[in-house]
């Protein structure tokens, strides 16, 4: 019993040391890294709010689910939590628009697309930065600019696609396969191009 208690005491001391180390590490967190994680959290929360049915948004359960999705992704951007949050929001959107609210505004889907991408981009940037990194403000500013450009271009193209689909009711059934095929072709092209470039490396 005495040995067990001594072991327990040592285990407690070890735990305390780890907790202290974690607190010390958190205290060293810089504003830039914290800001990126806040962006991840905020963007995912916005995406969640846009994806769930309007009637459920203000329910405490829905809010808890939203925070439960966004917070782990913001805290652990290097893990699969971010991907899980993105896919979950996508699935919720699919379910909402299929079963509850089939009529949605273009602004809502464009907002959701922008929020999801911002969450992904901020998490990708935060993942390569240790907690206590002092980030050059210029680098952060240029990242924000690039992300805004991508979001702007995607929102523009998305709006065009949505408008085109609405204008051509006959082609509505063809729009998704066409646009989707284009995106898929783009992805394949990027992957082939990357593989080709890798072969040509000196």
């Amino acid at each position: 019993m005495k040995v067990f208690l001594a072991d327990l005491r040592y285990a407690g001391l070890g735990l305390l040391t780890r907790v202290r180390a974690t607190i010390a590490s958190l205290r060293r967190t810089t504003g830039a890294v914290l800001g990126l994680r806040v962006v991840v959290f905020g963007a995912l929360l916005v995406a969640f709010v846009l994806s769930v049915p309007r009637a459920l948004v203000w329910l405490p359960v829905a809010q808890a689910v939203g925070v439960g999705l966004a917070l782990p992704a913001a805290l652990f951007p290097r893990t699969r939590m971010v991907g899980l949050a993105l896919v979950t929001v996508g699935v919720i959107w699919l379910a909402t628009t299929t079963f509850v609210e089939p009529d949605f505004s273009p602004a809502r889907v464009l907002g959701l697309a922008a929020a999801l991408y911002v969450a992904h981009a901020a998490a990708a940037f935060a993942a390569v930065l240790p907690n206590d990194t002092a980030v050059n403000p210029g680098a952060l500013l240029r990242w924000a600019l690039r992300t805004s450009l991508v979001v702007g271009a995607a929102v523009g193209l998305g709006a065009l696609g949505l408008v085109a689909a609405a204008w051509l009711p006959l082609a509505h059934g063809l729009a998704a396969p066409l646009l989707g095929s284009l995106v898929a072709a783009g992805i394949v092209a990027v992957i082939v191009w990357l593989a080709h470039r890798r072969d040509r490396l000196p």
Partner: peptide, 20 residues
């Protein structure tokens, strides 16, 4: 999106494709 004929899902994928 292609499977279900949903343009909105393709719109969700667009920023990721452009970004990459």
């Amino acid at each position: 999106g292609v499977l279900l004929g949903r343009v909105d899902l393709v719109v969700l994928a667009a920023p990721f494709a452009i970004g990459v």
